[in-house]
Design a protein around this nucleic acid. Sequence first.
DNA 1: GCATTAACCACAG
DNA 2: CTGTGGTTAATGC
Length: 226
Amino acid sequence: MKDFNICKNCQIKSLAAKVLNDKELEELSNCCADVNFKKGDIIFKQGALSSNIIYVKTGLIKFHLNGPKNEQIIKIDKAPIFLGLPITFNQKINYYSASAIEPAKVCFIDINVFKNFIYKNGDFAYQIIIDLCKNEYNYILKCVNRTQKNINGRVADALLHFYIIYNKKEFTLPLSRQELGNYTDTSRENISRILTELQNDEVIRVDNKKFKILNEEKLQLISKNG
DNA sequence: GCATTAACCACAG
DNA sequence: CTGTGGTTAATGC
């Protein structure tokens, strides 16, 4: 017997789902499925067919794709987030991949039911648009920063990003040096050098994957000025 | 010409 | 997979 209140009782509803009424939430419960992903699991893959709306309830997600030369990490974001709404609505084939880099609880939602909410419920549609707008802004910001900041600034940005994600100055980096390079548009060699340099300047402490931000002000300065 | 920056390669743990 | 050193090309002063 399917639990029709599963979405209604969900504590990590999206902003969009929060504006649904009881009947709609029941409908949603009837067409969604929870799936757990382990660290490193691919949630959807570049080149594959996209058929569901995907909402991540818990976990950390890496958006990545095979570029002309290397694997590129486009962004790293924590739950709760929707994955690939533009793909699901606009394309058929995924033009990038999404992976869990920390255990993730993911909700798959039937595209047609989701579309129906958009047609029928303006508040719901509005919340989805807000979500897309925030993404647009973040991508543009990231694009400019990536082009105009030097490597030190970009690495500092990345570390500050993880500081925001974990909300702690001490964290375990869920990426290899190679991946951190792919994320900050540089080589693993440069990452290696910059991290030891930051450590020598007592801006951070690094022990393998364990990071600690010692001097946030200085890290902010590097992020700003390189 | 000299310094800086970053990419690329090679080799060692 | 990482860290380090050497080399090189591009750019700016």
